[in-house]
Nucleic acid binder design. Structure first.
Lengths: 157, 157
DNA sequence: TCAGGTATATAGCCAAGCTATGTAATAATG
DNA sequence: CATTATTACATAGCTTGGCTATATACCTGA
């Protein structure tokens, strides 16, 4: 089945377009900020910490799924995070093969520092935002976050 | 000067926080969509085409700056794009060292196809959006796009 | 108890990005 | 006009982040 063309409703097309524009614009912004701050950690590291903060301790496999990387990639990321003492590996009580990965206070601080650094890098471009515009950004991110967190990747669809 | 801590105004802190949340949420969403679609091209390729579409033909150096990659990286990206016939290299009239890089009709089609594919991958998570929420997403991306396009990276600050 | 399945680890590969540097053209300067 | 400095792109070579395939250890069910 090559090149499956799907006909979307006008409404769905509008939604899809808005979503694509959000991720495109954000991608450019992220890239700008990452270079401005001379970021050294990979995005996956920060995604992983973000997941751990909101979900609490998770197994490596769960963490991989939620951070959208393959399991061996997450094994590697967790090794690095554990060496930095940003996460702690806790032996799983119920399964000796597994670990519970938890963010540490040090990891939490690193995460906050990263957020501050990133925010400051972007700020000069956005210091003129109106209250309404700030609200728009906050709403947009909340809306996306609510729908993306905890979504498994469905292989079929 | 290690670990420069800057005190932001409450307002700036709010803006910075909203921005960080936007890029974090979008990053997770992008990553979801990229895996769902089995994306093969790098994000930089699509950023580059997006820049060319809105800015018109650019030199490799300008394109590198605007797409937020180093110049040799852009040389490599353009080589790939030219091989796919998604861009055309046009000898610069005013400088024999330089090229004008222009998107082709084929490149434009590839870009649109990518957008459609990406949008459809995200749609299932967002099909319940209200009109107001769609508007919020569109406004947020417009707002970001307007401020990020054409911004050079200031080495100082 | 043993067969199959599952959680993580390891090995090894590939691609994308970078820095440093080369080459050729242009610009500036005496 | 000759020479030197600068600029635009290309090349070389490296590092790293991600992947697939597979090994290892443990768990589960017949």
């Amino acid at each position: 089945m090559p090149e499956q063309i799907t006909e979307l409703s006008v409404r769905d097309a509008l939604i899809a377009q808005s979503l694509v524009e959000v991720v495109s614009a954000s991608n450019r912004l992220t890239r700008y900020a990452a270079r401005a701050t001379g970021e050294t950690e990979s995005p996956a590291v920060w995604r992983t910490l973000a997941v751990l903060r909101t979900s609490g301790p998770l197994r490596i496999g769960e963490l991989a799924a939620e951070s959208r990387v393959a399991q061996p990639t997450m094994t590697k990321i967790v090794r690095g995070l554990a060496e930095s003492e940003w996460v702690l590996r806790i032996a799983d009580q119920e399964d000796a093969r597994a670990w519970q990965i938890a963010i540490t206070a040090k990891g939490e601080r690193a995460f906050q520092t990263w957020r501050a650094r990133l925010g400051e890098a972007m700020l000069p471009l956005f210091s003129d935002l109106t209250d309404e515009e700030i609200e728009v950004l906050a709403s947009a991110s909340a809306l996306v976050h609510a729908r993306i967190a905890g979504q498994l990747l469905t292989a079929g669809d």
